[in-house]
Amino acid sequence: MWFAALLVYLFLYLPLTVVVIYSFNDSRLNAEWVGFTWRWYEVLFQDEEMIQAAVNSILIAVGASFIATLLGTMAGIAIHRYKLKALPFLVITPVAMPEILLGVSLLLFFIQVLHLTLGLLSVLVAHITFCVGFVAIVVRARLAGMDESIFEAARDLGATPWQTFRLVTLPLILPAVIAGALMSFTLSIDDFVITFFTAGVGVSTLPLQIYSMIKIAVTPEVNAVSTLLMLVTLGMILLAARFDKTVLRGQE
């Protein structure tokens, strides 16, 4: 058994490790180890296109996770409170749907229905769409484990519905809300497929930028940016798991 587990881990992490190692290789080619260098990271931070893509990525990730967290939290509470049957399905479907489908349908929606010029805004809306479900799932899972009567107890002891939310509900779901926000951030900053369909020309994000670079060759610079992206993602996920363990258990 442990051997199988080891194989799986090797399979998962070996490619990632190779990328990280070669990002420090003092050679233009991903062939043999020459020596240690920070060179590619310096190149990275002087690449204006790359910097612009990173700024876009961060803007979108911050905006999308913020708005998705607000909406997702409300959705999670509503699904739980009113024992809604259809809404969970509607909110969670984008999470499970093949990304390519979501990407194509959002593209058609933006262009043909909204007549929107594709750009940062369309990417932002697209990212919110698939992050909302995640936040809702995590918040709802947190609520499901709680004793219903504490919310009634708050009302009973003199709290208005708003006070009940502020003083009881929110503090209790806060770990899930923070975890949901961090997860949304990583989902958004990593996303390629949906961004690819909804970005249009002229707007780039980190994953799009990496893709356009490897069309030519896998340069050490790509290794470097991938390493950084990996670090950010890993940090966020670990942080999210600290707040709410359900995020590591997947989607229930």
């Binding site: 004793d147 009567s149 504490i150 009634e152 107890a153 002891l157 003199g158 709290a159 009881v168 209790l172």
Partner: peptide
């Protein structure tokens, strides 16, 4: 006020803050 069968204490508040809740409200 109601005393619930499940007690319904606020898990994130200390004993003193639980008891203070109705007074603060």
């Amino acid at each position: 006020h109601t005393v619930f069968q499940s007690y319904a204490l606020f898990p994130h508040l200390s004993v003193a803050d639980n008891v203070a809740f109705p007074l603060r409200m």
